[in-house]
Design a protein around this nucleic acid. Structure first.
Lengths: 240, 240
DNA sequence: AAATCAATGTCTATTTTTTAGACAATAATT
DNA sequence: AATTATTGTCTAAAAAATAGACATTGATTT
């Protein structure tokens, strides 16, 4: 039995996750789609148990909604405008209600969802190849979207992504978190393309390589023979 | 009538403020003292009305508890450990209850206060000379303490101050917020002493002056004749 | 009134870091 | 063997940060 009861949660406080991935030189965000007549795109989010830390709640929610676990996850901002209400859901409450009853949503839970919520934003970085997002209970699908061309998101979720991207940019250098987006081994060019995707601007190859190597966090491995008509690049591994 | 009713607020969500001031070359924090047998030192905090933005709540709470308004105030971290309960208050609940009834605290309000709370931390910078902290309803006094020698604070409020100081240090340069701590006009030495108090380390006078002036946010005014046996320094005013 | 003192304002030299330019090395193709 | 497209690395130039030096100045002392 999987009954949802709002009484188990802290009231009117939620968590939403912005999950960044990287593939084909593009920075992506993972967006579940809620199946309704008019489909809703909403960040993976959820609620906090009465006796659960918010960091734990964020990890659990992410796991429940997408199957992703054991990754870099950080609180970055609280969104708490006075009228922060899920209007898109309210407009489709009847249909959503039917939908949800299949997963044992109680009557008062429905009403509860149309309350005003303060939401804590977390952001996460994952290697898309290492992760196989599953479809959450109330979702039709989960998809990676280029951060530059997201679908219309509900409520202030667009703003939440924007602010998460700002935070990512501020922290990429300082905290060396970027390597979370890459596979186990990678070439220097791939690191550079990642940085260029995040900052949406080009870097000079020679100086970029020097800067990254001077961090002393990469181990140089064997060369990677791509079959291309040029010198083979080294592979690297992140050491932390 | 000033009746406190927990039903008016978002449940189990609070706001606490770390208010930095600067005086006599020391970085200070404003700490109210709650009058009980064993006095409790607690950051000025409070709760969020059901239809009030969190930023507004922070400003209102600060005003109610200390009389301070119209200042730089910024959200910096959420504190949400699973067992975040005001034990110090619980231990003195009987005495506190009596105390509070004088200001019309309802019965269920008392119990409510001993719940687990998630707290949003805000920090603020004020010119101590411009501000005259009043004593809040439930406080015995409010005092400025050197950030390096605070009294024992309740719960995780010590940690909250620490994290606020980290944030202040990260933002001082970038956001030019330091001048909020100084009076209308000030000398370059005063700016330097402020920076030294915040970072707890010395700066080279010649280069510090160059760096600050190169920001192009200061207007140079007349000289300040102190009566000391040396060249009189210029006064400056912050332009933003 | 001249010498002294303590702190200020500013300049220059030095060092370090960042940025730009250049070129040899190399793996596959022609 | 020559060509091609990248890669790895070196050096020069520019910019920024740091350190050292000194003349200025307002009051005090002699």
């Amino acid at each position: 039995m999987n009954s949802f009861n709002s009484k188990n949660y802290l009231q009117q406080l939620s968590i939403d996750c912005v999950i960044f991935g990287y593939k084909e030189a593009e920075l992506k965000v993972l967006i579940p789609k809620i199946l309704l007549k008019k489909p809703l795109y909403s960040l993976p989010g959820g609620f906090i148990y009465l006796d659960e830390s918010i960091d734990n709640a964020a990890m659990r929610i992410l796991e429940e909604r997408t199957g992703i676990n054991d990754i870099y996850l950080e609180q970055y901002h609280v969104f708490g405008k006075e009228n922060r209400i899920n209007k898109d859901l309210l407009d489709n409450m009847e249909e959503f209600s039917k939908q949800m009853n299949q997963i044992e949503l109680e009557e008062n839970g429905i009403n509860w969802l149309s309350n005003r919520f303060v939401s804590i934003g977390y952001y996460a970085l994952v290697d898309i190849n290492k992760v196989n997002p599953k479809i959450g209970k109330m979702d039709e699908s989960v998809e990676w979207y280029n951060v530059k061309s997201l679908p219309q998101l509900i409520m202030d979720h667009g703003e939440m992504v924007e602010k998460a991207l700002e935070t990512l940019r501020r922290n990429l250098d300082e905290k060396l978190i970027g390597f979370n987006l890459l596979p186990e081994t990678f070439t220097m060019r791939e690191v550079q393309e990642l940085y260029e995707a995040v900052y949406d601007k080009p870097f000079a190859r020679n100086n970029f390589q020097k800067k990254i190597l001077d961090l002393n966090v990469l181990e140089r491995l064997e060369k990677k023979f791509t079959g291309a008509a040029n010198k083979a690049p080294y592979l690297y591994r992140f050491l932390m």
